[in-house]
Nucleic acid binder design. Sequence first.
DNA 1: TTGAAAGCGCTAACAC
DNA 2: GTGTTAGCGCTTTCAA
Lengths: 356, 356
Amino acid sequence: MAPEVGRAAGSTAPRSADVALVAGVSRKTVSRVLNGERYVSDEARRRVLAAAEELGYRLNHAARALASGRTRSLGVVALGTAGYGTASLLVHIEQAARESGYALRVIYTPDGDPEGIAGALASLLEQGVDGVVVSEPIVKGDVPVRVDVPVLFIGAPPAPAFTATRTLTVSVGALELARAATEHLLDLGHETVHQLAGPRQWYATKDRIEGWQAALAARGAHEPPLLNGDWSAASGYAAGRALASDRSVTAVFAAGDEMAIGLIHALREAGRRVPEDISVVGFDGNPVFAYVSPPLTTVRQPFDAAAREGIRLLVHAIEKPDAELPPTGQPPVELVVRGSTAPPPSHRGATALRTT
Amino acid sequence: MAPEVGRAAGSTAPRSADVALVAGVSRKTVSRVLNGERYVSDEARRRVLAAAEELGYRLNHAARALASGRTRSLGVVALGTAGYGTASLLVHIEQAARESGYALRVIYTPDGDPEGIAGALASLLEQGVDGVVVSEPIVKGDVPVRVDVPVLFIGAPPAPAFTATRTLTVSVGALELARAATEHLLDLGHETVHQLAGPRQWYATKDRIEGWQAALAARGAHEPPLLNGDWSAASGYAAGRALASDRSVTAVFAAGDEMAIGLIHALREAGRRVPEDISVVGFDGNPVFAYVSPPLTTVRQPFDAAAREGIRLLVHAIEKPDAELPPTGQPPVELVVRGSTAPPPSHRGATALRTT
DNA sequence: TTGAAAGCGCTAACAC
DNA sequence: GTGTTAGCGCTTTCAA
């Protein structure tokens, strides 16, 4: 079917030269068409496309990357647990990147510690990525890597000693979300709100603590000591067992939905009712927890908006290194009130008296 | 600190030639050291490594890929929802790939339909991957792409019309898991077991239906019509509302944990107790559902084992194209009995009479 | 055990 | 609008 076109008839995959031959144009014109550049006649474009189609031509990204110095790909350093947050963020990052014409290279780092992140970054950089996305890393410690591409941090400011050409940050509004969660509980009439926090060295934990503190301080509420978890339901359960015997606790803000689920389970096992005796609000917004008993009140992390916004920023920094960064909007603060929160027993008691 | 070494002292990143210069060897020797090839003296190796370290040398994968025709990377076609299964599988695939020296390029396909998979494959192939992993795609339809690298299907056999150099499959034992789940219910004394299935065009759905049918048939149990869901808790909830009024239903196998959660919620809202009136078993093994009420009985998908095994196969096919494939073990069948399953009311009734 | 030369397939710069 | 030339940084021959 295809005419004998030099090597194109051979055994190897067709190259741009073969397409050029079939289309009757130069390789550069093929390149122009494939890259959507201007200054190509409609006729030439049509012929190139037809030839590429006929030959089953597939562009070689490695060659393009070598010649152009750009890979049109982004590296992602993902935190290693298959939690809803990480997974959801990754899905949205991939989609946003793809829509901007970038492919994704992913490395998981179970702990998110500086060494792990440094290693992941080094590997990504070797592979040749035009930019890197790091989500919510650890608070302390240097990341001892020379990074010569823009780096986007999702959800937290970059570690202080991090050295990169250009560092970008996009917020998920964790502080505001934590404040909203705490305020919701305070509004319900609780005197104060305990927090079941994540590992202390995570940025994500820090923001949530600060938002909670801010809400407490604004109402003049006493700030109880933090409870510690590791994001897992099991750790929430452990914290709940410890907490159950303290009758003064009427409201808990858990820094993650799964911890909230574990916490509630322990509380109920110990005979404390949720939300009648203790209210619990989670953090993340995994829709499945609308279907447990009680349905979990939570705040939704705007992973979709953050990913879109972040990738927009990153792509901008890659493609227009010298331009100003575009302005970024405030992430939405979305409180999802379901069944795990209610007024404290004291209020309910009053209500009960009235209605009895 | 570093001596003036030609271009190395310039503004661009050091290349292998710079390392060679500093080490006092040829570029080829540098290449040999970096690729762990034999026939390099210890002394030469030491000098090359030292020079690379001193220069902060980073290998250029694009150049290597162009020259060698291999990228040392794997493409993953992931199904688009941020569910526990997909996310968990991806984490384990990445880990196994990294341990074998391969990087990962990921594309999500929300629906897993043939067009989506074809597009994802084409994109991955352009990027230049040495192999591809596709997890549980759709049953029907061609995937009209010329694929010239080995393709691994996790969890299901390849679509019939799929044309690839080499097609590999690794099972998660879904059929056996579905059978185990169904048998568990039958063993408890239920006369039959309903199934809340996933979308019919998914392979994953097919396996689970077949395992369920096999278990039913083996006991001579009647096979009730399938209920339909889309993996989401919301769809499980919808199915549960429809099911609640049918008093003859005493046991349901939900083909996904989240659907099971939604189902249970609807059942309870309608006044049916779980597990007293109806038993429900899920499918996946997300640990968080050990902490809901009732704790979900489920079967655990061996994502870790499947990913390890699958990547081993894929890497073998890539690196030793002509060799036999290594044998693969049977994936473990793990039933996790928790609180959402119990004997049917008839049995319990008998027990209740005795104890009253 | 090591090195020299040739090219992988593409794009950049500059001509026309 | 289009073509020509010269590499991108590495690995692959093949020779020493």
